[in-house]
Amino acid sequence: MSELIRCTNVCKDYVRGAESIRVLRNVDLSVAVGTIVALMGPSGSGKTTLLNLIGGLDAPTSGEIEVDGLRLDSVSARHLARWRVRSVGFVFQFYNLLPVLTAQGNVELPLLLTDLSRSERKRNAALALDIVGLGDRGRHKPGELSGGQQQRVAIARALVSDPRLLVCDEPTGDLDRQTADEILELLQTLHRDLGKTIVMVTHDPKAADHAMVTLHMDKGKLASQDDQAASALPSARTVA
């Protein structure tokens, strides 16, 4: 199976005043197309930083990151922004929906950056809402929806431009157990039916159960990194 994500010797330093803190240390990772990967580890272990790098939200201090055929570490911020529009969808812990927009409006947001006509945008957003089971809630504003429904809207927004990769930062972190399970089921459906590759950061062991591969991070390194990098390929790991 082909590779969607490849990180080679990736380091990331944050500078705070005169101090430089290394949060990622020589990370090597390979994720095949169509995998669900769970990134686990204690707070501060660097998992969200790695997720941000894979999603093209941040740049590595050194090393190479290639996602969907693009070397993210060597392109401009503007190029990266354009790439994000079509190649990656983001799901955040607190949904990050815009409160003044309806569910439909929130889902349409990424499409404003495409050449689609207004009617096409509306149609695609409605379809994405249908996929997440909220076809009848398009006119509701986030404040009128439950946490689980809001996260479904956020997932629809991540899906709407049909990216190959979804990056999810604690997608169930703000939800009760039952709702969290429903969201994890939904992510699995997206993987199964639409072939999405999903990388999620989570503290939730049940979320990890839904992943095909679980990677543990500690102190900026992938635990047992050499083995883990290889095992991220689904061929090397039993699908959960």
């Binding site: 994000r84 955040f92 607190f94 990050n96 815009l98 990424p110 950056l113 927004r157």
Partner: peptide
């Protein structure tokens, strides 16, 4: 957060 979200979307 809104600005960050919009920027992350592209």
């Amino acid at each position: 957060v809104e600005i960050g979200t919009l920027r992350s979307l592209g």
